[in-house]
């Protein structure tokens, strides 16, 4: 089987601390894959390694058949990797629609000067050539579709900073989804949301999974993860301690121990019938 994303021995050290320690993660094409683990388990560091914001100390990352270990984030985006952030990072001064248009950056012209005289690069932009205008129109149509998908269609012209917290999260998802990435990384999408918002988000994530985008998510909220995931990887102290379907993970004593500590896990094991 070929994996959409495969990390081998992925390691990242920060001074004395080993935040991610030899992680082998395999994400299959299609479906929703969750990475869980207690605070400080290395989940966000793992995401930053996969999306290229930090460089691994050791190990490799293969994405869609390419070794991306040394590629900068923008090249990974061009290969079809999108992500959201745990601490929201929308472009506050831009409108909602402009945010999503920016998310389509990798999908339009390939570089600053563009593809020859008739391209959508610098010359095409300044001369407003037909190819440029067509690309711009197509981008707006795609962006509007992405906004409709997350239910922000009516707020397209609102300044992003003026959106509520939950809507900013939705905007981040629309911005990451607009280019139809092969892999979407969601970094704690339910953080700071109330139960109703979390439920709505779960439905949205499931819908995104149905569109052909593979979803890898990091999450704290166990209920959220168990309800929507096809596969779960558990991290603790930077190591992968378990891999499997959600039901198996839920009952695993190793996981209970990681979350609740050895004593509680032992007590639970004793009291179990």
């Amino acid at each position: 089987m070929t994996w959409l994303l495969e990390t081998t021995g992925l390691t990242r050290r920060f001074a004395g601390l080993v935040a991610v320690d030899g992680v082998d993660l395999r994400v299959a094409q299609g479906g929703i894959h969750a990475v869980i683990g207690p605070n400080g388990a290395g989940k966000t560091t793992l995401f930053n390694l996969i999306s290229g914001l930090i460089v691994p100390s050791a190990g490799t990352i293969r994405f869609a058949g390419t070794d991306v270990t040394r590629l900068p984030p923008d090249r990974r985006a061009a290969l079809g990797m999108g992500r959201t952030f745990q601490n929201i990072r929308v472009f506050g001064a831009m409108t909602v629609l402009e945010n999503v248009l920016t998310g389509l950056h990798a999908r339009t012209a390939p570089d600053l000067l563009g593809t020859g005289l008739l391209g959508t690069g610098l010359l095409g932009t300044v001369l407003r050539l037909p190819r440029f205008r067509a690309a711009e129109r197509e981008a707006v149509a795609r962006a509007r579709a992405a906004l409709d998908l997350v239910g922000l269609g009516a707020q397209a012209e609102t300044r992003a900073a003026a959106l509520s917290y939950g809507d900013q999260r939705r905007l981040e998802i629309a911005r990451a989804m607009a280019p139809e990435p092969r892999l979407l990384l969601l970094d704690e999408p339910a953080a700071g949301m109330n139960p109703a918002e979390t439920a709505a988000l779960g439905a949205l994530v499931r819908r995104l999974g149905g569109l052909g985008t593979t979803i890898l998510l990091v999450e704290h909220d166990m209920g959220f993860v168990m309800g929507i995931s096809d596969a779960v990887t558990v991290l603790n102290f930077g190591r992968r301690i378990l891999d499997g379907p959600p039901e198996a993970v839920r009952q695993s004593p190793v996981v209970i121990e990681a979350y609740l500590g050895q004593k509680v896990a032992a007590r639970l094991a004793k009291s179990a019938p």
């Binding site: 929308v90 389509l104 999908r107 012209a109």
Partner: peptide, 27 residues
């Protein structure tokens, strides 16, 4: 004209948040 285009959006995105801009594919 450049400001009102994909290039202008990338420039403003860099100004607001370079990390997010990179993740959007801005070199």
């Amino acid at each position: 004209l450049i400001g009102r285009s994909r290039i202008g959006r990338a420039m403003e995105a860099m100004r607001e948040d370079e990390t997010a801009a990179q993740v959007m594919g801005v070199d």
